[in-house]
């Protein structure tokens, strides 16, 4: 439990470690794509951490990184094929950022720093914690960006062929000033990330005092 909590709060990949910011800024224009991307990274983290933890003694030190990249790329390729077969709309929404999970700093970082040193249980829990931390962070940014930039909250749209249910809500009554397009654009992603980071640091400093 401590490892999971550590991954979500103390070692949050986005707000504390500041890793994997490229997909964070790119896919959070929509709440649904944010949590789906988060879940994809969570699945990849779990599988790679478990696999690497199991075979860590068989891999010589000098070929650690290429072997780990190979393992991560395999799981990402499998996930991409499964998504394109069963949820093609979602596969299109995530686009290039789905195969780019292979080079995500968090996945390789946790594989080298945790999975290659710790036992199976710790590696699994670390993957779960970091994955959940990443998912919650993306959801938080996606939540603010979609509401402010599109005046909506998409809970289920691309995954509706599976759930047989669509859920897109309008949050505020539309006016001349609202929604603000800026938040949907890439600059809005930086701005929102900065605001959320400032808020978290403010709350952290307040707690320390």
């Amino acid at each position: 439990m401590k490892t999971i909590k550590n991954g979500i709060f103390n070692e949050n990949p986005i707000f504390i470690l500041m890793l994997g910011l490229c997909p964070t800024l790119a896919v959070t224009h929509n709440f649904e794509s944010s949590y789906i991307m988060g879940l994809c990274v969570l699945i990849i983290l779990l599988f790679t951490n478990i696999t690497i933890s199991l075979i860590k003694k068989l891999i010589p030190k000098n070929v650690q990184v290429p072997t780990y990249v190979l393992i991560i790329a395999t799981f990402v390729t499998c996930l991409e094929m499964i998504l394109s077969k069963y949820v093609p709309l979602l596969h299109d929404v995530l686009g290039i950022f789905l195969p780019l999970i292979t080079v995500n700093c968090i996945v390789l970082g946790r594989a080298i720093s945790v999975a290659s040193k710790e036992n199976l249980k710790t590696s699994f829990l670390d993957g779960l914690g970091i994955g959940l931390g990443w998912t919650f962070s993306l959801m938080l940014i996606g939540f603010f960006r979609e509401i402010l930039g599109n005046n909506s909250l998409t809970l289920m749209n691309a995954i509706s062929p599976i759930t047989k249910y669509r859920a897109i809500y309008q949050i505020f009554p539309s006016s001349n000033y609202f929604p603000i397009d800026f938040f949907i654009k890439p600059a809005g992603a930086f701005f929102t990330l900065g605001l959320v980071l400032a808020l978290i640091n403010y709350l952290k400093n307040k707690e320390e005092k």
């Binding site: 075979i55 068989l58 891999i59 010589p60 000098n62 070929v63 290429p66 072997t67 190979l70 393992i71 790329a73 395999t74 390729t77 499998c78 094929m81 499964i82 394109s84 077969k85």
Partner: peptide, 30 residues
């Protein structure tokens, strides 16, 4: 020499297993 051989063997075996896994998923999804 032994170390080099071990490294190449580890990479080759991992590639092979990964290739087989991708092939299985490809066959299942197509």
């Amino acid at each position: 020499m032994n170390k080099k051989f071990k490294s190449i063997a580890a990479l080759t075996i991992t590639s092979l297993i990964c290739g087989i896994l991708i092939y299985i998923v490809f066959k299942l999804t197509n």
